[in-house]
């Protein structure tokens, strides 16, 4: 009975409160109090919720990004590989085109060859190529590339040959300067350089002059590029100038070569 009385009083006071506030837009004190109490709690919960939500969204997004990233990486690798292949094909095409042009400009017949091995010693400069006597390769045949003279065939087996590079100390090529037509012998120095021997002091040779084969040695055809004059020294003693020549060919980058075939080799013993 007492409970019902208490409950009735409470209900009545709430009812009076509601009636008294109805139609007002501004908060009353209880409203404000409620808001002030619940507000911080709400803020804290909202922050935590937002944080959790953002973490979850980021995580989900990250999963997608990771997959996408992986996919993009794979695609990038594929494109890179394709790009390298295209570049290599283009470079090979350009190189072979130049080689073909050179081959057509050389006295026929000519034969292309690939390098299969290089001299491992510090003292000699030779190459092994994949053409031999069964292809018609003989001792003394000139070997050239697009840039210029490489060397000459030293010896051959049925399927392979050994080429003496022009930069070997045992190599000597009869040459002339392009501008002044001064004659000399280009000898290898055992490194990537020649020395131009037997050029008289009266001969006009300047730095930067182009050196070409003279065709007089009987081994190389006339007009092949040998190198560029790097240094000219005229010592007091002696009849000849000291001339250093930079090779036209980069001997570290050799790949395909052309052998100029002859009916009879001119350097037979």
């Amino acid at each position: 009975m007492r409970f019902f009385l208490l409950f009735g009083c409470l209900l009545t006071s709430v009812f009076i409160l509601i009636i008294s506030m109805a139609g007002r837009k501004e908060f009353t004190v209880p409203h404000k109090f409620g808001l002030e109490v619940i507000g911080p709690l709400q803020t804290a919960v909202a922050k935590v919720s937002n944080y959790g939500s953002s973490i979850w969204e980021n995580y989900i997004a990250l999963l997608h990004v990771r997959e996408e990233n992986e996919q993009l990486r794979q695609e990038l690798q594929q494109y890179k590989a394709a790009n390298i292949e295209y570049r290599e094909a283009l470079a090979t095409n350009t190189r072979l085109q130049k080689l073909l042009e050179l081959k057509e400009s050389l006295p026929p017949p000519t034969l292309t060859a690939e390098i299969i091995g290089k001299d491992p010693s510090l003292w000699f400069r030779t190459l092994t190529i994949n053409r031999g006597s069964s292809d018609g390769v003989q001792k003394g045949m000139p070997v050239v590339t697009v840039e210029g003279v490489v060397g000459q065939v030293l010896t051959s087996s049925p399927n392979y040959s050994k080429v003496l590079l022009a930069t070997d100390p045992n190599s000597a090529i009869d040459v002339i300067t392009q501008k002044t037509r001064v004659q000399g012998i280009a000898k290898g120095l055992g490194r990537d350089a020649f020395t131009l021997n037997y050029v008289l002091k009266s001969g006009v040779v300047e730095e930067g002059d182009l050196i070409l084969t003279s065709g007089l040695g009987g081994v190389f055809p006339k007009g092949l590029m040998v190198g560029t004059v790097l240094q000219v020294k005229k010592s007091r003693r002696g009849m000849f100038q000291d001339i250093e020549v930079e090779p036209a060919v980069d001997f570290t980058q050799l790949e395909q070569l052309i052998i100029i075939m002859k009916k009879y080799s001119l350097t037979e013993d």
């Binding site: 010693s121 510090l122 003292w123 000699f124 100390p169 045992n170 000898k187 120095l189 055992g190 490194r191």
Partner: peptide
């Protein structure tokens, strides 16, 4: 071996004597 190569080259062709490649020899 290097000296041997050098001496041998000298006897085989004095005009074809290689330059002694100090840097390469020391590296080797």
């Amino acid at each position: 071996v290097g000296i041997g190569m050098f001496v041998f080259s000298f006897f085989m062709g004095p005009d074809a004597l290689p330059q002694w490649p100090w840097e390469k020899v020391l590296l080797q």
